[in-house]
């Protein structure tokens, strides 16, 4: 699982997204749930956006829910479309130091460091 997904999964239980317990109930999301998902995804939704998102996200979730009808007993989840394994390489530095050029895309840098709002008082 992706690292980000692990973090998201851990946070999801903290904020109380309840797991589905019935496969038969129609899936839909309410405004509160959508706001929680938005928070997990670090997305600020404007109020007018939120209502539309509830409706469309519910449509999408109900649509993908048809997968629950597929019989997947004893089926190995796909990890790679061609069943290739992850290639490894030697742990050596191969790239040149291009920091100044790369940091030209950042909004706020100082002495080669990225600046963010204060996180430690």
């Amino acid at each position: 699982m992706h690292k980000a997904a692990c973090i998201i999964a851990a946070r999801a239980s903290q904020v109380g997204l309840r797991a589905r317990n019935s496969r038969n109930s129609p899936v839909s999301l309410n405004k509160e749930q959508v706001q929680r998902i938005a928070t997990l995804a670090r997305l600020k939704l404007a109020d007018e956006e939120a209502a539309e998102t509830v409706q469309k996200l519910s449509r999408i979730v109900a649509f993908v829910d048809q997968l629950s009808q597929a019989n997947t007993d004893n089926v190995t989840p796909m990890a790679h479309p061609l069943n290739a394994s992850q290639r490894l390489r030697a742990d050596v530095v191969t790239e040149l130091d291009d920091r100044d050029h790369v940091q030209e895309n950042a909004a706020a840098v100082q002495d080669g460091l990225y600046l963010v709002p204060k996180v430690i008082e």
């Binding site: 999964a9 239980s13 998902i37 997990l40 997305l43 996200l57 999408i60 997947t72 089926v75 190995t76």
Partner: peptide, 25 residues
């Protein structure tokens, strides 16, 4: 947000893992 939802705790198996199984089929 759809991705965040299907990967979140309690939904991961029902959606993401299930989809990767159907993908194999």
């Amino acid at each position: 947000m759809t991705g965040t939802y299907v990967l979140s705790a309690g939904y991961y198996d029902a959606y993401y893992l299930k989809a990767q199984q159907v993908r194999q089929l």
